[in-house]
Design a protein around this nucleic acid. Sequence first.
DNA 1: CGGGAGGTTGACTAGCATCAATATGGGTGG
DNA 2: CCACCCATATTGATGCTAGTCAACCTCCCG
Lengths: 255, 255
Amino acid sequence: MLHSEGRNLQPFLERLTARSVLTREEQQAILSLPTHASQVHANRDFVRLGETIDHVSLIVSGMVGRFDQNSEGSSQITAIHIPGDMANLHSVVQPQATSALQALSVATILSIPHCAVRAATAQHPALAEVLWRDCMVDAAILSQWVVNVGRCPARIRIAHLLCEMAVRLKAPIDRGSCSFPFRVTQMQIADATGLTSVHVNRILRTFREDGLVDVSRREVVVKDWDELVAAGNFDPGYLQNDINPEERLRIVKLL
Amino acid sequence: MLHSEGRNLQPFLERLTARSVLTREEQQAILSLPTHASQVHANRDFVRLGETIDHVSLIVSGMVGRFDQNSEGSSQITAIHIPGDMANLHSVVQPQATSALQALSVATILSIPHCAVRAATAQHPALAEVLWRDCMVDAAILSQWVVNVGRCPARIRIAHLLCEMAVRLKAPIDRGSCSFPFRVTQMQIADATGLTSVHVNRILRTFREDGLVDVSRREVVVKDWDELVAAGNFDPGYLQNDINPEERLRIVKLL
DNA sequence: CGGGAGGTTGACTAGCATCAATATGGGTGG
DNA sequence: CCACCCATATTGATGCTAGTCAACCTCCCG
């Protein structure tokens, strides 16, 4: 447990200010939140289902999956969180976990006590709305996920996932190609898309053979971004990643 | 457009106070929200995808589906809202609709302007957290839905949907049986579960033949609740419908 | 250098989609 | 009040997508 300086919260603040307008005081309140850093290992819950927790987890490095499972025990990843994401911001208003959290590969997280977040929102009411808003973007992603899993064949589901991750990770596209680190197993892709790892493997092979994208254990190399977007029926609007400054919301009026 | 008295907001207030502690003033602020009533017809969007809206929609009677669709046009219902639900509460912080809303059969809704909701949260900061919390329950339902659609065979998906609706509608269980109004078509069930209407029809037949549950055009008659719960792997915890008063949350401190 | 997790491939199967034909029933106009 | 009509429900036949089971490979780590 290391104590960390406020600069570690900068990515989270940037996430918030990309979508909402914050005053200098509100920004300072975010940056002043107390944190302590820790490492979490892959394949081990650091938040267990049903557990009541008293802190939120900001991801600094690595990726974290939100895991649910059916009664037969087969698991489904319902969200993938990347650095800058608050993996369980919703726990501020709903402390009893309805899903488990697990790193997809080794990850660094910053824990922030609920009470600190609550104190900040009590002092700066607009922050509650900013955080609420952030949660609703996650919900929009989740909603899109239901459509993918419910109404798309495997090829589209996987292509869509790869597109979503590229956009969220802001992988720069250079002459139709891009690449980004993606340290997940095929089994984890299967859990995210509601498929089996065997089938994921076969689809990834066709992607490779078609010159669309190479997915290895450590990274994704997109060979033809436009084709991948087409293969995944991908429309990035729901990610709300490209909001112009003038469209950013301010709910409680500025003084 | 009829102007309606505050008592119409009572079901919504009850929904909120079931999970959160509100002061008398905060309760009054909810009940004083300005509304106007309207009817919406089945199979016609009353909120269109991408539209920017300036009001939220409280459902008074009937049921409303949140519709998404993939690029081939096949639609997926990502949420079913019942009377007392605010179908698009999230639009307060995210006015651009990422899903369409459509009544499943004729429904009555109360529209409430965003500005009124924002004014209420500005005056009573705790309300923002109460509303945020309500949105997060919807998100938990959505998350459960991904698991169902992604990891369960058709029989389980449909049984789970029926169980969820029974619990949310608070259908009383009498000697292992219960029934509740459910005016939806088999096609709508198919859209909710990510199946085809043909397959839904076949599964419903087996339910009838097995003496589990009768689903007609207008209502659901559960013959054997325990068996239906077993068939749907249903655990109602995620609905947070049974929170004891002492567990209700208050985030911003009471004076 | 050995072990184990994860990747790859094949053979076979099952569940659900698709297409198509017919039945039903509730709502409407005459 | 009846007849008609359209949306919905029902049923059958067939095919495809993805699951299952199983064997083997490969790479990474200790």
